[in-house]
């Protein structure tokens, strides 16, 4: 334990240069290196191959690798940009960057839209919205009658679907979010502001690496 340079340890498959990732994201090089420490922990939780599988993602989120959750599935699928069933390090950093407090709001809005566009048609459709509300109700103790759910979905659509064509496109979504900024609440993770503090063991390693550079 202690002062071991990350430079000399074996890197996980899909490892990318922190300097390149920092240049493309809201993170500094040190923060990307701290994220690598986190990534390694997550990617060895179950399947020890240095890649984050869905079961490992679920285990990290819920302390249960079996727990099914529609929204966690969607987040995983969006992080898995290559759609090869795993989150690689570069995908992890680029995706998490959207959740950084300093990331452009435009990116957060677009990511949230893609999350809710379950069938990836480019629109949030009424049926999708109802499906997501029902999924949330199933996961929680909230109990609402089908009639009330229909009313809520209708009302939300009435507000968001300004063109009245029965589906919400990205422009309508942007307008809707402007009027309801709380909808982006989940798109910012304050933890990312001090990721190097969250992984102090990394800081010791990083100092050795930086001297080497």
């Amino acid at each position: 334990m202690g002062c071991i340079s990350t430079k000399h340890t074996k890197q996980t498959p899909g490892y990318e240069d922190p300097k390149v990732l920092a240049s493309e994201t809201a993170f500094t090089v040190s923060e990307v290196e701290a994220l690598y420490e986190l990534y390694k922990k997550l990617s060895f939780l179950i399947i020890k191959d240095g890649l984050i599988h869905k079961e490992e993602f679920q285990l990290a989120l819920f302390r249960n690798s079996e727990k099914q959750n529609l929204f966690a599935d969607r987040v995983f699928d969006l992080f898995d940009v290559k759609h090869n069933g795993v989150i690689e390090f570069g995908e992890f950093v680029r995706s998490l960057s959207i959740f950084h407090p300093d990331a452009p709001e435009e990116d957060k809005i677009a990511f949230a839209f893609r999350l809710y566009d379950l069938r990836q048609t480019g629109y949030i459709e009424r049926e999708e919205l109802k499906e997501m509300v029902m999924a949330l109700l199933n996961e929680s103790d909230l109990r609402l009658s089908d009639e009330v759910v229909e009313q809520i979905v209708d009302k939300t659509f009435g507000q968001a679907d300004s063109k009245g064509d029965g589906r919400i496109d990205l422009d309508e979504w942007k307008e809707f979010v402007k009027k309801n900024p709380s909808l982006l609440r989940n798109m910012t993770l304050p933890y990312l502001k001090d990721i190097t503090m969250a992984f102090p063991s990394f800081v010791m390693k990083s100092e050795v690496s930086d001297e080497d550079m």
Partner: peptide, 24 residues
Amino acid sequence: TNLNAFDIISLSAGFDLSGLFEEK
């Protein structure tokens, strides 16, 4: 009701990524 469908959805634990940062 004044509930917005997206506000309801946003309550899902699946959106709470803070678990990624907790001690493993």
